[in-house]
Design a protein around this nucleic acid. Structure first.
Lengths: 203, 203
DNA sequence: ACCTGAACACCGTTCAAGT
DNA sequence: ACCTGAACACCGTTCAAGT
């Protein structure tokens, strides 16, 4: 399988990695197929041997993003297998940190940059898998009486949506300075999360 | 002030309106300054007499979006001046509907398309004003014992974030079909919202 | 199968010039 | 002040051609 090659033998992957780097450095607006090709050391039309169009490259980068998000989520949650409450908090914070540390990847994953996401099975699968991990944690919390009884998937959408919304607004600079002057993003997130937890003095 | 003009006398506004239409018809990816100029019936460089660059046009369209959102929010909420609980629900649903009926405007308002939002005072002001309206409703709910005591702005971020997150995930096609097969977006939103309300049997 | 280079239709932005 | 047209450096995408 590995033999003589034109350039590296795995240009497809090299293009994805180049794309991720450009995205991190120049943002969504700076991501062009031609730059990606140049960074990978090939001509501007070489990517078309591996991706039918720019959207497909974006789908591949997004898929990579979901895999990384899954890994970070899982790593944050796993240590607390018998403490669902801490799983919830650790997972939530891992999600928020991923978003804040990989703003532009987070953006192409969730902000309509990818136009027909349903056309990319790997993307759909990687995002589905991530959601399932959230559902797992939610279910464990329900079993432990930490979260209210309800269809676990529905509650998971609510929890995920809460985190996603807050961090999206934060990244977009939409959170009022009246709030940011007094609370860190961490405090905002945990305040919202605690509100969902049963047995909370305020709930 | 109104006198003879080259084209309409208010090209600036005509460009914004043309932009909104193109956005609605072709999405963020289809929005170009040259198309906007063409639609307004001027040369491709005419817009530069009114906007320093494309980002400024986007800022103006986003500002327009916030004004519309504010108006719809206010119209939905005002009828229930003495029923904070219904204000909260009506306002929430108005927000979600705005997002779903104006997907692409919503996108440029909130999805990182506008890169240095802080540089556009009109944008910042229109978004601040909208947030203030949310805070008003939250405060009324707190006074009526519908929402828990907490700094109103903090709680408003939580409520807004919850709605924003759910509708963003929904627009992005990220809500599992396991959920969507059983619940409408309206049910998902209200389920999450009710969870925040005091005196709820489930809270 | 994998890659190159020329070509095409589009961009955003600048600038000299016209009214 | 407001607008035009040519020009420049970039895009995404296609295609004939090379290995």
């Amino acid at each position: 399988m590995a033999s003589k090659k034109y350039h590296h033998g795995d240009l497809k992957n090299a293009l994805i990695q180049a794309g991720i780097k450009i995205l991190a450095k120049e943002g969504v607006g700076g991501l062009s197929l031609r730059k990606v090709a140049k960074k990978a050391g090939v001509s501007h039309s070489a990517p078309y041997a591996h991706f039918p169009d720019k959207q497909s490259l974006i789908a591949a980068i997004s898929t990579e993003g979901f895999k990384q998000l899954y890994a970070e989520l899982d790593a944050a949650v796993s240590p607390y297998a018998n403490d669902p409450r801490r799983q919830l908090e650790a997972g939530a914070w891992a999600y928020v940190q991923f978003a804040m540390n990989n703003t532009d990847t987070f953006n192409i994953m969730f902000s309509g940059v990818l136009e027909k996401e349903k056309d990319y099975p790997a993307f759909v699968e990687s995002s589905r898998k991530t959601f399932e991990r959230v559902v797992d944690v939610v279910r464990a919390c329900q079993d432990a009486g930490v979260l209210r009884p309800a269809p676990a998937e529905l509650l998971a959408v609510s929890v995920w949506g809460q985190l996603h919304g807050i961090v999206s607004l934060a990244l977009e600079g939409q959170i009022s300075h009246v709030v940011l002057d007094r609370f860190s993003v961490r405090e905002i997130v945990f305040s919202a999360l605690n509100q969902m937890v049963l047995g909370n003095p305020l709930s």
